[in-house]
């Protein structure tokens, strides 16, 4: 029943998994991804159409480039 998160009287309290090396690696990966998203977003804002934060996810129309600066 414990697999349904039910505590039976007299049952031994379930023990949580400890933090391990994978947790650290994921933390480093998350930090790296946040940094990469920041740099790419900043670069996308520079080359995106019409400027602004949303320019990082917009595309230039065909045959026309407008940086908005």
């Amino acid at each position: 029943m414990s697999q349904f998160a039910m505590q039976m009287p007299g049952a031994q309290r379930a023990r949580s998994a400890p933090l391990n090396i994978y947790t650290g690696l994921m933390l480093a990966a998350v930090v790296s991804l946040i940094a990469a998203v920041g740099f790419v977003m900043y670069a996308g804002m520079q080359v995106g159409p019409e400027g602004g934060p949303m320019a990082a996810v917009k595309l230039h129309p065909e045959g026309k480039v407008s940086l908005g600066r």
């Binding site: 991804l33 998203v37 996308g44 995106g48 230039h60």
Partner: peptide, 23 residues
């Protein structure tokens, strides 16, 4: 962290696609 890394990966992919096209 795994979930958050996955979300960040997708966001980074979209931003990279858009950046590459605009570049």
């Amino acid at each position: 962290l795994v979930v958050f890394a996955a979300v960040l990966s997708m966001i980074l992919a979209g931003l990279t696609i858009a950046y590459t096209s605009n570049a």
